[in-house]
Simulated assay, not measured.
Amino acid sequence: MQHFWVIGTDTDIGKTCVTVLLMRQLQKQGLRVTPYKPVQTGEVIEEGHAYYYDTTMYETYSLQQLERTDLNDYSFKEPASPHFAAQLEGQKIDTKRILEQIKRLKKMMDIVICEGAGGIFVPLDVNGEVTFLDVIKQSQLPVVIVTRTKLGTINHTLLTLEALYSRGIEVLAIAFNGDTGSALERNNIETILQHHPKPYAIIPQYKELSEVMDHSITNTSLYERLYQYDTKII
């Protein structure tokens, strides 16, 4: 089956939004889909209730029953880079454990959507020797890149693409997230695609993630790339 990563050109760029959107769209096709966030940071406390945003959004908006143990391996309270958040709690992130979990989920599900944390060079150990990019490479899965449409996205996106290509990692598509329809944003998107023509989707700026329930990307080349690949294999 086709499984893939959703990775970002930076932190707070909408990876969870895109993961949830793709999860729902593919679940509507009758496919068994689970998201998987290997490492999440930043515990949220509201009215005495503690939770983690990413995995809570998975459970809230999934069209299928999800197993909580399938969604995440490491959760750290501090909203920081994984290596530092883990260090604060006296823990170490075992990349072998992450890869074994991906392997296990692939046997169970039609599609596993693995979500990264921050950008691709985010370190996972205190020495900075292992990054998320290393885990992506070792998983042998392709990626969907999530990037902004605003000023600065051209540089961030092209650098991310170059890093992935230099390591032989397949890029399935690009999700341009948070679009407001300005001329600047349109030019940014066109410029990136001129350098790297890829299937893509333009996702509008949401006020609330709940708007994902009313949005469809089935008519985009990004979705066609994923779904045609999936149906061909299935």
Score class of each variant (00 low, 15 high):
L184V: 14
R148T: 09
F132P: 04
T55C: 02
Y200N: 10
K106E: 08
A201Y: 00
V171G: 00
G14T: 09
T55S: 11
Y36D: 12
A80H: 04
S210A: 13
G152L: 08
D94H: 06
A85V: 06
E115F: 05
Y52F: 15
Y206W: 09
I145S: 01
V6A: 13
T19F: 01
M109A: 05
Y53I: 14
G168K: 06
G181C: 09
Y229Q: 14
M23Q: 14
Q138C: 04
E59R: 15
R24I: 03
P82L: 13
L71I: 10
G119I: 08
L158H: 00
N187D: 11
L226T: 10
Q2W: 06
T11I: 06
L124C: 07
I120V: 11
P82W: 07
A175W: 02
V122Y: 05
R225T: 05
E78S: 12
D70Q: 03
N219R: 13
G168I: 09
L66A: 12
D54A: 14
K207I: 07
M108E: 12
I145M: 06
T9K: 00
R68H: 11
T34L: 03
E208K: 11
D179N: 12
F176C: 05
W5T: 07
V171K: 00
I113G: 01
Q40G: 14
L151Q: 12
E89F: 01
Y53W: 13
V44S: 08
P38M: 10
Q228W: 01
A86V: 07
I136L: 04
T157M: 02
P142W: 00
M1K: 05
K28Y: 01
Q64R: 10
I202R: 12
F176H: 02
Y58H: 13
M1C: 02
T147I: 07
F132V: 09
L193Y: 07
S139P: 04
N188F: 07
R32H: 07
T41W: 08
T41E: 07
Q29I: 06
I169T: 01
K137Q: 12
L66K: 11
E78A: 15
E46T: 13
Y165S: 14
N155R: 08
I202Y: 01
R68P: 07
F4R: 06
H49R: 13
S139A: 15
C114Y: 04
I234Q: 06
D94N: 14
L161W: 00
H215W: 13
L66N: 12
P38A: 14
M23L: 15
A85K: 14
I98K: 02
V143C: 04
E59G: 14
S216M: 02
S81Q: 12
Y36F: 15
